[in-house]
Write a protein that binds this DNA or RNA. Structure first.
Length: 442
DNA sequence: GTTGAGCGTT
């Protein structure tokens, strides 16, 4: 993030130190766009650190060299870590992500604006942004109960250029107070592939090429079977999985059929290719944080991979949280981040839909070499990561249904082909059932 | 007391 380049973390500050005080202090080095003192959200007690954002990154060097005493405490200034960095340094390949982020893969023309002063009106909001282009929509969010401003809002433009212009700067001076702009997260998981940040997230496995899939693979037809995506976005209770798979890429050819229509898992499909008989088994399921079917014998392979559950929040970095990670079985996938990357471009990082786990396999990821019997092994305890769907019952039940039976919630009787030893999960047996043709051929 | 927090409605 550009703004992070000029942002410093200030640690060890006094509990008495305010934003104002910090600003006064650091103003001595150059223009300060913003200071913030972090407090406990509940108690309001200062946590002893904060951030300062300078207008000009070049002053950082001086700031970093000096020692600083504010309100009687010697504080420590360090470069602020981006969230990506916090999760695990990725040898600085972040920069390359840029071309994706700003570029043409973005569909959303909506901007999230954070840090709004409570006094700001929608008029003021709009007026400011109109200088960047045609504003088509403005919204300042209020708490539904208290009716108090929540401090953020949205602004929509009619052109991507305008959006780009706005995003060129992360901080905007709106009637005296700095606000922060970011691309809005697409609210519905399908639209958009809008996630920026390209999730080069990890893996380093040529995320670029995935992006390609991410973008082009979008198969609109999948929308047809989804009612309102909004609806599905909510918990997966009961209804089973919405067809996350919006993807369905490769639809034909890859056996991604939507054989499970209605039932949810739909599009997953398999890749059956290399592993006849496993037809149904498909990485990712696109389901949120589904742990992959790991081969228990391969520790470290990333079941939940990616950030199952996503640490803290994905705001800010908007990293795709690795839905649909596959990584099952094979260590070589292990990285699971492979999954993350694969989904990367499209994962919204937020929406349970979207982010289908396209069967990476078959796309050159080296087979999943997983060992066959492993699937469904009850010991996997798979669900692990699934913080979104508690219970993680996915596993347990044999997917891959060799019968090509696409029935979800089938009972054990479907068994023959099921690898799963038990039917723990609410999702019953053999989902994945996918495209029978592959599963059965042979 | 040392790396935040925020994503809707039509």
């Amino acid at each position: 993030m550009d703004s992070d380049q000029a942002k410093l973390f200030i640690g060890g500050i006094s509990w008495e130190t305010s934003e104002e005080r910090m600003k006064e202090y650091f103003q001595g080095y150059g223009d300060v766009l913003q200071t913030v003192v972090m407090r406990d959200k509940i108690t309001g007690k200062p946590r002893g650190f904060g951030f300062v954002v300078f207008a000009d990154p070049s002053v950082l060097d001086r700031v970093l060299q000096d020692t600083h005493v504010i309100d009687g405490r010697t504080v420590e200034a360090k470069r602020a870590l981006s969230r990506e960095e916090q999760q695990g340094p990725k040898s600085g390949n972040m920069g390359s992500a840029r071309s994706f982020g700003g570029g043409g893969n973005t569909k959303t023309k909506k901007i999230f604006v954070g840090g709004l002063p409570p006094t700001l009106t929608e008029d003021g909001f709009r007026t400011y942004f109109e200088t960047y282009g045609n504003v088509t929509d403005v919204a300042i969010m209020f708490d539904q109960q208290t009716n108090r401003p929540r401090g953020f809002g949205f602004i929509s433009f009619d052109s991507e250029d305008a959006v780009d212009r706005v995003l060129h700067k992360t901080y905007h001076d709106l009637s005296g107070k700095q606000v922060e702009v970011k691309r809005a997260l697409p609210k519905d998981g399908n639209s958009g592939f809008g996630g920026r940040s390209t999730g080069n997230g990890g893996s380093g496995m040529g995320g670029g090429s995935y992006q390609g899939y991410g973008a082009s693979g979008d198969n609109p037809s999948s929308y047809d079977r989804m009612d309102t995506s909004r609806y599905m976005q909510s918990q997966n209770t009961g209804g089973g999985y919405p067809s996350y798979g919006s993807s369905g890429y490769g639809t034909a050819g890859y056996g991604y059929g939507s054989s499970n229509n209605g039932m949810g898992y739909g599009a997953y499909g398999s890749y059956g290719g290399a592993n006849p008989g496993y037809g149904g088994v498909n990485p990712g399921y696109g389901s949120p944080a589904v742990a992959a079917f790991g081969n228990p014998n391969v520790p470290g392979t990333g079941y939940g991979s990616g950030q199952a559950g996503g640490p803290r929040s994905s705001w800010g970095s908007q990293i795709p949280s690795g839905y649909g990670n596959m990584g099952y079985g094979n260590a070589s996938w292990g990285a699971s981040s492979a999954g993350g990357a694969a989904n990367g471009g499209s994962a919204t990082g937020q929406s349970p839909t979207g982010a289908t786990g396209y069967g990476n396999q078959g796309y050159g990821y080296g087979g999943y070499g997983g060992n066959d019997g492993a699937y469904g092994n009850p010991s996997i305890g798979g669900g692990a990561s699934g913080d979104m769907q508690s219970g993680g019952g996915y596993m347990g039940s044999g997917y891959g249904d060799a019968n090509g039976n696409s029935t979800l919630r089938s009972d054990t009787s479907q068994g023959s082909g099921n690898y799963g030893a038990q039917q723990n999960g609410p999702y019953g047996g053999g989902y994945g059932g996918a495209p029978s043709r592959q599963a059965q051929q042979h």
